[in-house]
């Protein structure tokens, strides 16, 4: 039966189907229109994204002079040098630790704050504004604020610790503490954006689901586990990915708070690249590091999509 119906369809196509003969110019009409619309962004991306990327790849195979002009082709030597360098390895370890400190805590704190701010209370708009306000603050401004807070003698953090009877902590001066201090600053900076996105996700959840659960007698924690988190999973996945990539690329706060010190404890990878390129004028090795960072972030993000997305419930 199905085979006969197929032949009927085929017959109909043979009998009435019309193959329009189009020239190459006619066939590509849609494509050309699309390209016209895409042209402005392609142009900007090419100048500021694609060209620098290709240039980085190119430079990573060369030794350069102080102006950054490629002077000697060295193949993979830059990479070999980098991978053996103890500075790079230490920088890598710091970066991974830093990501570990910042990503889970940023997301969990933002989620907690968003859950609080999602309650219907009088004046909740004020708290929502306050809690998302770090989003509107530049990295430099935030870092300077924390520079004052961390100040060993007049900083408010140490004053507060002294009041409750704990001795001062050398926040930015001690190699043990410096990375944690930078992480605290970064979490504080991340929270605003993550909070706003998660709050948006929470507001998108149909209130009837909670009302139904309420009638069924589900307690708050059961509702959180069985409704809120699954319904929020696409948002959480998005914010985890973004925070993750941002953490790898942290630069401004390091530059202002510690300049990579003390004892290279906060020499995060992007800061190390900056130092190699613009302080040591080693554009070749800096490019090689940038490429390694790119491959690392790219690979980890793919892994995240592969394993994380299974737990995400899209509607």
């Amino acid at each position: 039966m199905s085979s006969s119906s197929v032949t009927v369809v085929e017959e109909r196509i043979l009998q009435y189907g019309r193959k329009e003969k189009l020239s190459w110019w006619g066939k590509t009409k849609n494509f050309r229109t699309a390209m016209l619309y895409l042209f402005p962004s392609i142009l900007l991306f090419s100048i500021f994204l694609f060209y620098p990327m290709l240039r980085t790849v190119y430079l990573s195979f060369f030794l350069t002079d102080a102006q950054g002009v490629a002077s000697l082709f060295v193949g993979f030597e830059n990479f070999a040098y980098i991978l053996q360098s103890s500075v790079f390895r230490k920088s890598m370890v710091s970066t991974l630790l830093f990501v570990l400190y910042t990503v889970p805590s940023s997301v969990i704190i933002a989620l907690f704050l968003a859950l609080l701010a999602n309650e219907k209370l009088r004046g909740i708009g004020f708290f929502r504004t306050i809690l998302s306000s770090t989003m509107g603050m530049s990295v430099a401004a935030s870092a300077v604020i924390w520079l004052f807070l961390f100040h060993p003698t007049v900083g408010i953090l140490n004053s507060f610790l002294n009041i409750i009877g704990i001795s001062s902590i050398p926040w930015l001066l001690d190699p043990q503490w410096a990375l944690i201090s930078i992480a605290i600053t970064t979490v504080w900076m991340n929270t605003g954006f993550a909070f706003l996105v998660i709050l948006g996700g929470l507001q998108n959840i149909d209130q009837h689901l909670y009302e139904n659960a309420e009638i069924d007698g589900a307690k708050y924690r059961y509702q959180l586990r069985r409704i809120t988190l699954p319904m929020l999973s696409p948002t959480l996945f998005f914010i985890i990915t973004i925070t993750f990539i941002n953490s790898f690329q942290s630069f401004g706060q390091v530059d202002i708070l510690t300049q990579g010190g003390p004892a290279e404890a906060t020499n995060l990878i992007v800061y190390a690249i900056y130092r190699d390129a613009f302080i040591n004028y080693q554009f070749g090795t800096a490019s090689a590091q940038a490429l390694i960072l790119f491959i690392l972030v790219f690979g980890l993000t793919i892994l995240q999509f592969k394993f994380g997305e299974k737990r995400v419930h899209y509607q």
């Binding site: 149909d206 689901l209 139904n212 699954p230 319904m231 419930h313 509607q315």
Partner: peptide, 11 residues
């Protein structure tokens, strides 16, 4: 209770 949009849990 039955809601207008049924309030089914999509996940």
């Amino acid at each position: 209770m039955v809601f207008q949009n049924y309030a089914l849990y999509p996940h």
